[in-house]
Design a protein around this nucleic acid. Structure first.
Lengths: 161, 161
DNA sequence: TCATTTTATGTAGTCAACTACATAATTTTA
DNA sequence: TAAAATTATGTAGTTGACTACATAAAATGA
């Protein structure tokens, strides 16, 4: 890897590096689907997997399970519906709710998509190697950031001086 | 932490989790500056640190050292200039180049900012605990993603079946 | 030396997340 | 049971990264 000033900054550059890495992964994923001739986008696996598990979910239910804002879910779901992968229907008991299910096209294509996702998981597993604690540490980070955030921790450090 | 479907997906959800975590950090950083009454934005530390080390740099030089696109650097540097933290001047030998240096205001405020950044680093260090290999593993991930990307690795896995 | 290529900056438009606000339906409560 | 509060979806606008294109200056080379 060529010279990278951000890496020199250690923990200070952490947020920037996490974002860059994530963007690199998403970009690469988009290329992969293109190469394999699949007309889906990088984050759609979230909704495919959700609806595979829960059969039918509304916008808000998906947003809550994914920890995404509801407008983000609307954007994703609308695209997937236009691409023919989702069916939408109004809820019988609550006419505000819009329920989504997987379409026949989704069910037909899912095995192929899952083969790709499983291959991606295998590749990542190999990349980390045996006994990696990266995912555990990521989990800890997430928990700590949700409990007591960066701002609070830094301000505490400042007042300890 | 409440139920999170993305975490259930293991490595498949990695990119989403890295992005969310990064966004949470940036959001929290923004709040922190607000609380402490500092009129700077989360990523500005990159340019403060760069110009502290190199004194004078052009747009392209900064972009290359940070691995950012040059339009991103222009956006950041223009904001910092408007806030009075940077001075811009045309290069003597090459009139295309725009050189940036830290302003007097930047030099006056830098010690205060560095105290905040150092506190942030300390907080993060404590959070990881002794002997953490998280940053090393992040580095490996970055290197591996720059050498042979996700797409390539996944397609390799697919063809190994 | 002048035509071509490369480099530096700037501009426009895209993308995927977000917040804030709007509207309609449901639920709660006085 | 009617008013108030809450909930579900939708819309508009913001943000910070990006790519693609435009323009001007400098460097290269026939």
């Amino acid at each position: 890897m060529q010279y990278d000033f951000v890496n020199e900054l250690g923990y200070l550059g952490l947020a920037v590096r996490l974002k860059r890495l994530s963007e690199a992964m998403v970009h690469s994923g988009r290329q992969m689907y293109k190469t394999l001739g699949k007309d889906i986008e990088p984050n759609w696996f979230l909704i495919f997997k959700l609806l595979k598990k829960y059969d039918q979910l509304s916008v808000t239910e998906m947003a809550s399970k994914l920890h995404f804002s509801h407008p983000s879910v609307i954007t994703m779901a609308t695209k997937m519906e236009k691409a023919g992968y989702l069916n939408a229907s109004a809820d019988k008991n609550d006419s505000r709710k819009k329920n989504y299910t997987l379409s026949q096209k989704a069910l037909d294509n899912l095995p192929g998509f899952e083969a790709i996702w499983d291959a991606g998981i295998e590749g990542t597993k190999k990349l980390f190697g045996e006994g990696s604690t990266f995912m555990d540490q990521l989990e800890s980070l997430e928990i700590l950031y949700s409990q007591k955030d960066f701002k609070t921790r830094t301000i505490n450090e400042l007042s300890n001086e």
